[in-house]
Write a protein that binds this DNA or RNA. Structure first.
Lengths: 253, 253
DNA sequence: TCAAATAGTTTCACTATATGAAACCCAGTT
DNA sequence: AACTGGGTTTCATATAGTGAAACTATTTGA
């Protein structure tokens, strides 16, 4: 028997450029960094980073703060991103990010928006598991069950929220009380979970996507079979999902 | 006599990175480009561009349109430019003040910074008039015409100012003299005006925004059609604008 | 006030690595 | 079939990027 390891590094790519881009990506977490900070983050020698930064600075992608002399992102990004924002459709823009999250968690990722007294699934990337939830993009679901519903109502503008709560036709009086309590919990925690609320055997975690203007745009949801997505696991993953949702929010207008 | 040309471009910089960035900058003019289009714009071989694009694409700075397969800017730029405009960024901090000034004067208010031999419009609030100037945020303009250019050069640090004046390629010798005179006037008056300098039918007043450390941060500009913004009116409004700029300066850093 | 540490910059020898020519693939056209 | 016009891969070559180390400049701190 013969075992062959194939070190599949089929990179048709330019190392120096990738390094430079990694440097830029440092600024997704911090707005201001010193050369040595950057060097340690990207794990490169000071002098290398210095040269790369000089190139980035020369083209205006990085600038140095006049006062602190630290490095920060340059004006060229305004120029580019101004040109970039043609289609402002979150369903398109956020797709790559959703795919990344799917690859990370392995479960189906969906995007819901509130429309009237319903929520609409405007985008989804499917889990690769054999057993997975399947719901079509465009599907409409009620606004008083499910993790993403809670998020959509809990983080809605106050006026909208009032209306939603007032005009929903609740199945029974009891459910309403429970739902209101869950709204408060959701707002506090920053995310919501649901286990077999709408569909038997299904569970979901959801977090709000808030744009730069502070407006709720959509609810990001991770959903899967309840035996895989236990309440415990969902709570463990919640920070990760909230962070992903936050980052998605920054990508929107 | 001996004449020696020293082609002193002592660049401590990485060529591959600069080329990659040049590729990105192609997308300030077009939103979608093919590989060969890019190759001809940056004057490099297809294969070289292909490799650079692969690197950019791998890091999400460039993506390919699902339908046309053409190259376009990637979602990473949203992420970055979002982080760019956090606190500390005059474009965000001063926005409310700019809106107030707009409401007061009724004209378009812009914020310009100097970058190399250009000025960049980093923020703007539009006039509500039907007839108004429209220029996108991120637009780059030359540094030797327009009210805000004069302000940016006149109030630049001496060393920077020297360089700017030295390295500008002046259209004619005459213009330079006039410009230098205007710089002196600007410095003295504390503001600058322009009437149909860059665009026919457009006029502007501009005053420097100086932070608490005494550094020039940006030029605040009020612009509109020349028949509404007469020279007389602009001079009348100048003290108001200078005061607004002064107050904005105190808000920074 | 003078060490000592820290941050940034430049130099330099070495070879890893980016480069362009050319070949190649794949769809559409003519 | 030959041809055009996109994209991709291979490959020999020397260019150009690399990290160590030396060198400043600035800050800390004793």
């Amino acid at each position: 028997m013969k075992v062959v390891f194939v070190m599949e590094d089929n990179k048709l790519t330019v190392r120096a450029v990738e390094r430079a881009l990694d440097i830029m990506l440092c600024f997704t977490e911090s707005t201001e960094l010193t050369l040595t900070e950057i060097a340690s983050r990207v794990e490169l020698h000071k002098s290398t980073v210095h040269r790369l930064l000089a190139s980035l600075e020369g083209k205006g992608f990085i600038m140095r703060d006049a006062a602190t002399d630290k490095y920060r992102l340059g004006y060229r990004l305004w120029e580019l991103s101004a040109n970039l924002s043609q289609e402002g459709d979150p369903g398109i823009i956020l797709l790559p990010e959703m795919e990344r999250l799917r690859d990370l968690l392995g479960e189906t990722i969906s995007l819901y928006v509130q429309d009237g007294l319903e929520r609409i699934r405007i985008q989804a990337v499917q889990s690769n598991h054999a057993i997975r939830r399947v719901a079509p993009v465009g599907a409409r679901m009620p606004l008083y069950v499910g993790a993403s519903s809670k998020v959509l109502v809990a983080f809605a503008e106050p006026a909208v929220q009032q209306q939603l709560i007032a005009s929903a036709d609740w199945p029974t009086g009891l459910d309403q009380q429970a739902f209101l309590q869950q709204l408060a919990d959701t707002k506090l925690a920053g995310f919501a979970t649901s286990v077999e609320e709408r569909e038997p055997g299904a569970a979901a975690v959801s977090a709000p996507i808030i744009d730069r203007g502070g407006r709720l745009v959509a609810a990001l949801a991770v959903s899967g079979p309840a035996n895989r997505l236990t309440l415990e696991l969902m709570q463990e993953q919640a920070p990760l999902i909230m962070e992903a949702a936050r980052r998605m929010g920054t990508m929107l207008r």
